[in-house]
Design a protein around this nucleic acid. Structure first.
Length: 868
RNA sequence: GCGCGUUUAGCUCAGUUGGUUAGAGCGUCUCGUUUACACCGAGAAGGUCGGGGGUUCAAAUCCCUCAGCGCGCACCA
């Protein structure tokens, strides 16, 4: 073993060894059929780019849970895959070919573009899978899936057909969010908002119209068919119901004055021009009032034909002309700058145009027989409310429910080329919906593709063999064995986008939940708390970090110091710190393996020293705590406890003691703790632990070793005596450091209260040897000491007085004592007051009162001694 | 506008149902080249737990309120 641990030399080899072993696949674990299963389906990364730190966090957390359960004896399946990310991928490729060749997708044509996309996809997909392996992820590659492979195509088509036949999928005309750049619809939550300044124009449609309206989009007013006012608004009450026929910029409009409670009397003039075709709210008003729907803007973002000079102009051009005309006709009252939230496409940033369009929808409100006559929405709410699905952290349940309750029908068709084709075929007036294209001629398929979340919504069961494994409403094969899965672990930002869809899709297809728990991790921010992004250049590349510090260090930096659902900051320094820890673990193992003959004998643990008992107690309690923390998803705390034990207790104390305190069983204890410590660490840092395990030359892989069990024999040992010795040693070290006792003037004598003489005498060697710089040592009773002696340093540890002979700096010591006295007086004052309080005495638990009383006594003796 | 989160040491963050003197890592300072490790060891300094009020014998923890920061949803004519 090298002096320092160099991850590059080992990681790839170890990963290959794991993969070859076949144990990533639960079928090879040789477990009984009754062994419980534990399944996580990996959230498939988009194949648009390489791995980022969010993925690393996801992989670290999931691999931790997976490896832990595998070692605990579960049939553990972690199923990998990638997502075709329809719009995102097509955009990425379109950008690429435009940059490289200056051509658009329309120049290229559908077939060629798809060819390009598949070429691109193969590359990025391979990169992502290679990078996932670099993280040490123990995924079952034999079950790998892609959201757009043959099996998933089959599942998606079947799902569409089933939903269509159940009347859940329908085609309808609605206002949709249209991205003129992507030429496609977007779902409500695919929209982002950007705050910006906008101009609010106040004007009259024409001279003969009675009042002024205000709008930020004058060009849409060409399609107004009504004007809405608040029914309570006294200014306009008398106009309600009237109809005006006017000319607005030479375009004839027929406007009905309607009342609507949602009109804000204080915004603008309190009058709202209703444009049913280009506003979601106005569409609703149109439905309620039977208004005519007049389309103004087409799918190119241009004005339709039939609007005179405006036709074929862009919205911006049209707006300019209208403003000019209004000014000429003296109809423009004023302009005001306001803050406005612009809707933009989450992919390309172009501003969204709401337009009416014929699209495919999934109804969330239609009652479904096989769901007990409940709708998808109702059922999806029910499973969360009844806690069939639990959220970690819990607060996300509320966010999920809020979103679900306000959910509208989900528009699933997209006007892009890359994606799942819609299994709908047309022939003149006929329509056919089926998994396979009808054999007779002249059928053409629906040109649209499906929203990428449609296929990823089916991810938990499409990967487990649905629909083949689901005949006559009965699960079989993998689907029977592994569904519902135990946990879905993902970033909270896709809670609504993805998690909710998965729940609805699974409920519809299988009438069961897709997962029992949803664990949501936070975002990884840079060290200034900013989101990492390519454009800002503040991103940390995980692969780069793995090369520099090793995968284990990267994993630890994701797991320790962050809590579920909260964002966390990451810096190179943090990762570097964990690399140091890994090196420490490496050296602990190196020391033990080179100094200790390691063989697991049947040790009886009979001649144990204080230190032996102490470390065995600590270790067995550690196992208990780790189990507890992992059960509660407190990964960070589990990691910190492990680190504390490994570094502070095991390395700094026990290993040091083992260098001189020899007894028969020491080797066995060292070896026992090392072996089991490696097991506890394995889910966190699989590489280094496995490499050390291989150095021990065991025949098995650590990956499939049994998780350590707690030995109750040691958990209840009293370790107070060792703690006392530890404190004495610390106090001596402290005195050395604080008072600068010169090495030449050696401490020879410890004088203490009678009660402890025997204990300290017995552990004299320990005290001498543990970096206290003491060669000779005699222990005396405290009644013998001359406290007036200048050379005496008095240390009080709990109720033990210790006098160290030979102090150099008297003043410093006095200052220290004075400070301590003040502290003690304060504590005693507070304690006395507390103990005089009758309510405390009567109401607080007896042990706590007792505790306080003892404490008071202790402080008082300590104070007395100090004041001497 | 509604909702959620957050505010703890110089920095980054823990703190599990209220209960010893509020913890860790990094940073700072002091000392130390003892053959596992200088990617090390031994110590120290540093906090009125965002402000105010309340409940309780007891509050970082529960309630109210105010403020800063972040996020989600809605509005956006």
């Amino acid at each position: 073993m090298d002096k320092t641990y160099n991850p590059q030399n080992y990681e790839d080899k170890i990963y290959q060894k794991w993969e070859k072993s076949g144990f990533f696949n639960p079928d090879n674990l040789n477990l009984s059929k009754n062994a419980p299963t534990y399944t996580i389906i990996l959230p498939p990364p988009n194949i648009t780019a390489k791995l980022h730190l969010g993925h690393s966090a996801m992989l670290a957390i999931e691999d931790l849970m997976i490896r832990y359960h595998r070692m605990k004896g579960y049939q553990t399946l972690w199923l990998p895959g990638t997502d075709h990310a329809a719009i995102a991928t097509q955009n990425a490729v379109e950008k690429k070919i435009f940059k490289e060749r200056g051509i658009t997708r329309h120049d290229l044509g559908k077939e060629k573009l798809l060819e390009e996309i598949w070429k691109f996809l193969k590359q990025t997909q391979a990169t992502i899978l290679r990078q996932t392996r670099k993280m040490g992820a123990s995924l079952d590659w034999s079950r790998e899936a892609f959201t757009l492979d043959e099996q998933r195509k089959k599942a998606v088509a079947q799902m569409f057909v089933d939903m269509y036949e159940a009347g859940i999928i329908y085609k309808g005309e609605r206002i949709v969010n249209w991205c003129p750049r992507c030429h496609s619809t977007l779902a409500d939550d695919e929209i982002e908002y950007k705050e910006q300044k906008a101009i609010l124009y106040f004007f009259k449609y024409s001279k003969d119209f009675p009042f002024i309206i205000a709008t930020t989009r004058p060009e849409t007013k060409l399609g107004d068919t009504a004007v809405a006012v608040n029914p309570k608004d006294k200014r306009y009450k008398k106009y309600i119901g009237k109809i005006y026929k006017i000319n607005f910029c030479e375009i004839p409009l027929k406007l009905k004055i309607i009342a609507n409670r949602e009109v804000d009397m204080n915004f603008g003039t309190g009058v709202l021009g209703v444009t049913p075709a280009h506003s979601m709210a106005d569409w609703k008003m149109a439905e309620e009032n039977n208004l005519e729907i007049k389309k103004v803007i087409n799918e190119e973002g241009k004005i339709y034909k039939g609007f005179n000079e405006f036709s074929n102009k862009t919205t911006t051009q049209a707006r300019e002309i209208i403003i000019k005309k209004l000014k000429e006709q003296n109809l423009l009252e004023k302009q005001e700058e306001i803050n406005n939230n612009l809707s933009i496409c989450y992919r390309c940033g172009a501003s969204i145009e709401p337009l009416p369009s014929k699209q495919w929808f999934i109804s969330v409100d239609k009652k479904i027989k096989k769901l007990g006559n409940k709708s998808l929405k109702e059922k999806a709410i029910e499973v969360a409310e009844k806690e069939e699905i639990k959220f970690i952290p819990e607060r996300f349940k509320k966010r999920y429910l809020d979103w679900m309750e306000n959910l509208r029908d989900w528009c699933i068709s997209r006007q892009i080329w890359f994606g799942h084709e819609i299994p709908v075929y047309y022939r003149k007036q006929e329509i056919y919906v089926g998994v396979k294209k009808p054999e007779s001629k002249n059928w053409t398929q629906d040109p649209d593709t499906l929203d990428t979340w449609f296929s990823s919504g089916m991810w938990t069961f499409s990967t487990l063999g649905w629909p083949d494994n689901f005949k006559k409403n009965k699960k079989s094969g993998d689907l029977l064995k592994f569904h519902p899965t135990q946990i879905l672990e993902t970033g909270y930002e896709i809670l609504t986008l993805w998690v909710s869809r998965m729940i609805m899709m699974s409920l519809f297809a299988l009438q069961e939940i897709p997962f029992e728990n949803v664990y949501l991790h936070g975002m990884i921010l840079d060290k200034n708390g900013k989101k990492m992004s390519k454009s800002k250049g503040n991103g940390i590349d995980p692969i780069n970090m793995i090369e520099k510090f090793g995968a284990d260090a990267v994993r630890l930096s994701m797991l320790i110091g962050s809590t579920p659902g909260n964002d966390s900051r990451l810096s190179e320094e943090k990762i570097e710190g964990f690399k140091k820890f890994i090196n420490k673990l490496w050296n602990i193992a190196r020391y033990i393996l080179s100094n200790v003959k390691c063989q697991m004998l049947n040790v009886k643990y009979q001649n144990l020293t204080l230190a032996d008992e102490w470390i065995l107690n600590k270790f067995n309690n550690l196992i208990k705590k780790i189990n507890d923390d992992l059960k509660k998803y407190n990964f960070s705390q589990a990691g910190e406890k492990l680190r504390k034990f490994t570094w502070d207790d095991f390395a700094d104390w026990y290993l040091e003691i083992s260098k001189f305190e020899k007894n028969e069983e020491k080797n066995e204890i060292l070896f026992y703790i090392l072996k089991n410590l490696l097991k506890l660490w394995h889910p966190f840092i699989p590489f280094v632990t496995e490499i050390i395990w291989q150095e021990i030359k065991t025949n098995n892989l650590l990956m499939i070793e049994k998780w350590p069990t707690v030995s109750n024999k040691f958990t209840n040992i009293n370790i107070d005596n060792f703690e006392i010795i530890k404190n004495i040693i610390s106090a001596i070290r402290n005195a050395r450091s604080e008072n600068k006792i010169e090495p030449s003037k050696k401490i020879k004598t410890i004088i203490c209260t009678e009660k402890y003489v025997a204990l300290i005498e017995k552990n004299k060697e320990l005290i001498k040897n543990l970096k206290t710089n003491i060669n000779e040592l005699e222990i005396k009773k405290s009644c013998d000491v001359k406290t007036q002696d200048d050379r005496v340093i008095r240390i009080i540890i709990d109720d033990i007085e210790i006098y160290l002979i030979d102090a150099k700096d008297k003043e410093k010591e006095q200052a220290r004592i004075n400070k301590k006295i003040i502290e003690l007086e304060k504590l005693i004052f507070n304690l006395k007051r507390k103990l005089l309080n009758k309510e405390f005495i009567n109401k607080a638990p007896a042990n706590i009162v007792e505790n306080e009383k003892e404490k008071l006594k202790l402080y008082q003796t300590e104070l007395k001694n100090l004041k001497l």
